[in-house]
Structure formats: structure tokens, C-alpha cells
Amino acid sequence: MDGFVLQFVEGLKTTVLLALISGALGMVVGLLAAAAKLSRFAPLRVVVGAYTTIVRGVPELLIILLIYFGGTVAISSFFGRYVEINAFSAGVLALTIVFGAYTAEIFRGAVLSISRGQIEAARSLGLHPWQTWLLIILPLMMRIALPALGNQWFSLIKETSLISIVGLTDIMRVAAVGAGSMRAPLTFYLAASALYLFLTSLALVVFNLLERHFAVRGH
């Protein structure tokens, strides 16, 4: 059992790393996709619209399998020999694509809810569009987006467990292996549940702090 404690620690590290990297990248993708959806350039809107619609309409598990196996096939045929992509990279890629699609919708809605006048005030002073985005739109949007963004992060933390299907040794994988080899499924799955709950609670605390930070000050 002691061996499994260490394995759970390793699994926890993998899960946290996977969630943080794909969450951070996914938010960047989401912001860019939201900006694209709001752009005046119609072809861009169509392409990005297709991305978010398709990704949100397909089960995450399928996207992970498509990227892991599809990616292996694609890279192997490119190099002319069998190359297996690593489960962690496939996981990051898959979750980034999924997270980007969902957060794009959240960010787009949040930008649309900012009063047009506050953006016009920035333009009327001669601010550059990137200054307007960074200093006016982003902070105002974040306040509106945070609750929905928090929910999306909880989903992301839980969805990392799907990557265990392609062999990544995360919390879920450690629990499944332990449950089988020690013939104690209840113990191992409860332990895994506790770890996921710990992570989502941590995320909840972080988001509460962020919401307080971005709230209109001086209440």
C-alpha cells in the first residue's frame, strides 16, 4: 500500500500539471477564438465557429482517442516509421482544444456584455486597439466571465481523468491499477475521489479570490 501512496503523489502531480498546462493554453486559445468570432473578417468567424461547434458537439473521450491514435498514425506516416506520441502531450493537446472551444463561448459572451460606450470612450481618446483590449475589455470581461470560467476549470480537472485511457499515469490510472492489483476497488476509488475533490476545492478557493479581486471595488 505504501508504494501506492507514492504513486498517488506522482499521479496527483501529473493531473495537476496536465490541468494547469492545458487550462492555460486553452484560455489563450479561447481568447483568440473569441476575438476571431467577434472580428469583422467573415471567413475567420466561420472557421472558428466550426471549431467551437464541432468540438463542443463531440465527446471529450473521442477527441482524446482521435488525437492519440490519429496523431500516432499521422506522425508515423510522416516519418515513415512507427512513432507513438506520448500520452501526456496528446492529453495536453486534446484538453487544450476542448477547453479553448468552451472558453471561447464564455469569453465571447462576456465581451458582448461590456457596454459599447466604455469601448467607444477608449477609442475617442485615441487608444490603440491592443491598449483597449488589454486595459479596458479584458478586465471588464474577466469579471463577467469568472463564474462560468470557474465551472469550466472544475470540468477540466475532472476531464483530465479521461487521459488515463491512453495510458497516462494520473490519479485515475493509479487508482484503477491499484484497485485491480490489490483487489480493493472501494479504497482506491475513494482515495482518487478525495484527491479530485481536493483539487476542485482548491480551484474553488482560487476562483473566489479572483472574483473578489475583479469585482467592482469598494462595495
Binding site: 466604455q118 477609442r123 481618446l125 487608444l127 490603440h128 486595459l135
Partner: peptide, 30 residues
């Protein structure tokens, strides 16, 4: 635009900035 000041019907102050920050943002940024 930087040489033209505009005052709007609906004020359009930025709610995440203090009065002073609202007023000094343009001079710093532009």
C-alpha cells in the same frame, strides 16, 4: 481622436478604475 475630447450622454467611465485613473489613463497611454 487624441486631439478631440468627447463627452458622452451615458458618461462611459470605466467602472474598474477610480476617477483619477479614468482621467489619467489617456495621458499615460496615448
Amino acid at each position: 481622436r487624441a486631439s478631440i475630447g468627447m463627452v458622452f450622454q451615458s458618461f462611459n467611465l470605466w467602472p474598474h478604475m477610480t476617477a483619477l485613473e479614468n482621467v489619467s489613463a489617456g495621458p499615460v497611454l496615448v
